[in-house]
Design a protein around this nucleic acid. Structure first.
Lengths: 189, 189
DNA sequence: CAAAATATGGAGGTCATCTCCATTTGTCAA
DNA sequence: TTGACAAATGGAGATGACCTCCATATTTTG
């Protein structure tokens, strides 16, 4: 699944160009004011090429999203290897908020596109979800976190954070959500 | 703002017809497979009429959403009047999950449409947010809930719940999120 | 009841999306 | 290197959804 087909050199180059430009435009938040065809020009390829590589806006978003997820998963692994479980989890969640905050436009664009059609991102987040599940499971094993709540709930909360991009006081509220989740997890009730 | 203009009788009728059909189609989840023009026919009016009443899909969604919000706010008020603050809050949040669960398709459709363009729903949710803020504030005054976390965080969590509609184990996870939020709120740390 | 005001509906213009294929570019064997 | 085959390109044009416009119909008002 990583190396589907040995892409030809120029195809590879174009694909990169498209992804690079996509990240740029996503981040600037200008993606929706842009005709998809024009985006092709902007990236320096023809429309045909754009559509061959990414049949829809969503497909393009998914590809970009993959990169993001990979980065985050790396972070998760590194934290898990160097910190006690509970701290790793906390650090990861806090870090997520930082990350999203640092890439507002991108997060917003991805959230919007993903909402459009179900599961488009579900596939892409699988890895992220696995990382979160691992973090929680380890913390549970350590006895630092209750065991009667599924890690999926944490994913849901994260989903809420990134989906609620347009709230005026986003940063503070996002931090509060993490606080609630972490404190809620701690209490075995 | 409630009675902008005394609408003519037939206009009123058409508007109702559109809203009724919209609720129906939203709930069935078929809204996105439908050309907006065709939706007009389905509701028994011409395209012009549809567009005059609701210039965009989002406008239509917002109108439907208003009804939902009103229902929920009523519930909030009734709970607040009859239960101790903490219980009212808990009951309301649990009830939200029930409500969303009972109107899956509608919630999904609304979430998708709202994600599309910022603040479209922000305006509509104002009342809902106020209700939640009141519930939380009362509970804080009762000393049942910590005071260092904004009610906005609860809204964000709710947002996550309704936005994450396509998760296979939605119901259980949604309940878990509420559990986390409630337990997190309880702990003054 | 006539005139004024308001609302209707659907034909047709506009414009983004996507397809298609003649041409170009890259690859590989000899 | 070169020829031949495969892979990829790009942009012109078909397609179809969205929205506007206005001649006609309906309601209200005096």
């Amino acid at each position: 699944m990583t190396a589907d087909k040995p892409l030809r050199a120029d195809a590879q180059r174009n694909r990169e160009a498209l992804l690079a430009k996509a990240r740029e435009v996503f981040d600037a938040g200008d993606f929706f004011d842009l005709r998809f065809d024009d985006f092709a020009r902007l990236a320096g390829v023809g429309t045909g090429t754009l559509y061959r590589h990414f049949p829809t806006r969503e497909a393009l978003a998914e590809a970009v999203y993959h990169g993001e997820v990979a980065t985050l998963c790396d972070r998760a692994r590194r934290l898990q290897a160097t910190l006690p479980a509970a701290e790793a989890l906390a650090a990861f969640l806090r870090g997520m908020v930082d990350h999203i905050h640092a890439h507002q436009g991108l997060a917003r664009t991805l959230a919007t596109l993903m909402a459009d059609r179900s599961g488009a991102l579900a596939e892409g987040s699988r890895a992220l979800e696995q990382a979160v599940t691992d973090l929680v499971a380890t913390a549970v094993r350590d006895g630092a976190v209750r065991d009667d709540v599924d890690a999926g709930a944490v994913m849901m909360a994260l989903h809420g954070i990134s989906a609620a991009h347009d709230r005026p006081d986003w940063r503070a509220e996002a931090d509060d959500v993490i606080t609630l989740v972490l404190d809620g997890l701690r209490r075995p009730l």
